[in-house]
């Protein structure tokens, strides 16, 4: 039971980082990233490939993945530079996300396609004894989560963050200031991308095996639910939201024991239906909406 909780804790941590990244791009930058699953895929695969094919160590691989996803996000944001309307941006990100997942699925020579990549090592896996390793990984994950929280808060508090926030409220001002605003938005999207890359790397380390089926659109649903459930306020809300969502959904795996008649496909389908319905209900009954403001301080408990 303890080990289950520890493993759950690790998953909660990188899911929360993913949710925080989404929250950052969306709450601060006003840019909703419907391609989240695709960028997450990019992060995980980049990290894995840098290790398996590039021979990098886990730290370098993670940093590399962060840089790659940040660049991909920056590029995506640049395309929609001229039109910042949320409708178009959503569709573009959706499409880019799809493209990325298609690449993972189809470029066998690089990604081994549907077979996926196996044998991904874990950070310091050789050094730390196997029986305590999970605790180490949990500690590392929590540290990374706290680090992410700190960095994003600092950025939000910085002059850069304040400017973007003020401009997001007032389109007219944004228009007159022109390019500067748009570049700020690109940067925000890129920074969020870096943390998506981090979450993806952690995902790769945790499972040690990645294939395209792990990165379906449920990922987006999880992250959105976490962000919405977290409600208005500091990022801490998002984290609790992510934790709650994750616990509910991982816990629902036990449905299989309760209802033996369902096969795994059907079970997976039910879980997604629950997520989808949950998402809609949250939207209806959470009137605070999405324009969550970054408070100037972090409240952790």
């Amino acid at each position: 039971m303890i080990s289950f909780l520890v493993l759950l804790g690790i998953v909660v941590c990188f899911s929360a980082i993913l949710a925080l990244a989404l929250n950052f791009q969306w709450g601060l930058g006003g840019m909703v990233n419907f391609g989240l699953a695709g960028f997450y895929t990019l992060g995980a695969y980049s990290c894995a490939l840098l290790i398996l094919k590039g021979g990098a160590n886990t730290l370098l691989a993670a940093l590399g993945a962060m840089a790659i996803v940040a660049a991909a996000c920056a590029l995506t944001a640049l395309v929609t530079l001229r039109v910042t309307e949320e409708d178009y941006f959503a569709i573009v990100t959706l499409g880019v996300g799809e493209m990325l997942r298609l690449v993972a699925l189809n470029e066998d020579w690089l990604t081994k396609g549907a077979l996926g990549l196996t044998g991904i090592p874990r950070p310091l896996g050789d050094v730390i004894p196997a029986d305590v390793y999970v605790y180490f990984l949990l500690g590392l994950s929590v540290a990374l989560l706290l680090g992410t929280l700190w960095v994003l808060n600092v950025l939000a508090r910085s002059p850069f963050g304040r400017v973007v926030r003020a401009l997001r409220e007032d389109d007219v001002v944004a228009a007159t200031l022109g390019k500067n605003v748009l570049w700020a938005r690109v940067r925000i999207f890129a920074i969020g991308g870096a943390f998506i890359g981090l979450a993806g790397s952690m995902h790769a380390f945790y499972y040690q095996y990645i294939d395209p089926t792990q990165f379906t659109n449920i990922v987006i649903a999880y992250a959105f639910m976490a962000v919405i459930a977290g409600g208005r306020g500091a990022h801490a809300g998002t984290i609790w939201g992510a934790a709650a969502v994750m616990v509910l959904l991982e816990g629902s795996r036990f449905l299989k024991d309760v209802i033996p008649a369902l096969d795994s496909d059907r079970l997976a389908a039910i879980r997604i239906i629950i997520i989808g319905v949950g998402l809609i209900l949250l939207l209806i009954y959470r009137p605070q909406g999405f324009m969550r403001e970054y408070r100037l301080h972090v409240e952790l408990k």
Partner: peptide
């Protein structure tokens, strides 16, 4: 009357639900 993003996310969620009803 809620913002465009709210409606888009709701439509995304709805899409998941419908597709998986078919899958189920």
């Amino acid at each position: 009357g809620r913002g465009g993003i709210t409606l888009m996310v709701a439509s995304l969620g709805l899409g998941f639900v419908l597709e998986n009803i078919a899958r189920f």
